[in-house]
Design a protein around this nucleic acid. Sequence first.
DNA 1: CGCGAGAAATGATCGCTGTTCAATATCGCG
DNA 2: CGCGATATTGAACAGCGATCATTTCTCGCG
Lengths: 205, 205
Amino acid sequence: MGRRSDHSRAELREIFIAEGHRHMGDVGYARFSAREVAKRIGYSVGTVYNVFGSYDGLILAINGRTLDLWLDFLEARLDGADDDAPARRLDRAIEAYFDFAMAHRHAWTALYDFRLPDDTPLPEPYAAKVTAIMEAVEREVRAAMPHESADEAPALTRSLLATVHGHCFFALNGTFRLLTESDPIVAAKARVADALAAHRVRLAG
Amino acid sequence: MGRRSDHSRAELREIFIAEGHRHMGDVGYARFSAREVAKRIGYSVGTVYNVFGSYDGLILAINGRTLDLWLDFLEARLDGADDDAPARRLDRAIEAYFDFAMAHRHAWTALYDFRLPDDTPLPEPYAAKVTAIMEAVEREVRAAMPHESADEAPALTRSLLATVHGHCFFALNGTFRLLTESDPIVAAKARVADALAAHRVRLAG
DNA sequence: CGCGAGAAATGATCGCTGTTCAATATCGCG
DNA sequence: CGCGATATTGAACAGCGATCATTTCTCGCG
């Protein structure tokens, strides 16, 4: 109908993202439908393309919302733990990684199910959200490292994130269930602790 | 048409899997089409359902083929390296992990893009292929561990696989490219070496 | 106040998908 | 040869993302 004044552009965008995020959480990436999201908020298909330009644009906005929530979740878990030792804070961060992923299975998995066409680069705002999470973790990794090797913190952070991600992915995935079930969180913490211990040894040796 | 005697059931299955695997490698999971595969080998849509029961059945067969190739690839890389030290053989296995994933980007990624409906368990033959790869790696991990802690090999193997998977996933994914680019293979090897070193320390301490 | 330019929203339409299933074609056996 | 069993077909269906001519609305200008 064209109820132009019901919502500003920004409001409409927000409504789409909120409902889209809910829908993603409900049905997951494979069953997600842009039409369905539009219908639920009382708009038609075409409006998705007016507001987000493309289907991929909508998905990116929804995944961006997931990243925002993830960063908030991580920071909330670390706030008020200032007295904890750096290693304990790292453990908290790992727990937050797993807890968020499990609490938002579908939305979290959608982050990795979706891929832009090969040549298309990630939009800058989206990339910024990813790096923001990376940097929050990097602060913790740096605090847990010897001061003299602070320059290695970025590389080590990414490696440790990959390590934790792998454990979390296999846990949600069911891959871990194929053999003896163990505790993926404990394993992830152990691998991170191993890496930091080995780092100290390398530095001393 | 109904050219019943052109191929036995097993042959037909093989033709579908071969062409399906090729198609998956060409276009990736998101653009994969069962119709298209059938068309390419001169059969109609319905035959997919006769032979594989469902779309998911076809995907599982194709992913199963990828797992077969993966195991072959891994074993070929380890064969003839009997003189290498266990740690070197583990490095070889990690290189094989990455090399296979990069050589078969789309097919490898499809292993993780596809998920069965929530309550459905993996078919036993498929699960067997996954455990076969796991066991091949476990042999290498066990060889690199102190003999007295052989019972910890299964748990450690899964944890190290998750570690390597995380690095490989981020590498193919582009996540690593978001910050300073480093060498994910080197990082993965380092994390595995760290874990084994820490394990020896725990055992000695 | 009225009106017209331009923006916003629509939804029919297209080509594609997986899935179903009645109809058809083919085979092996008696 | 003929018949029962089985393999194969492809039209039909509901749904998808994408497009775009059409309709609806808004708001500023005269």
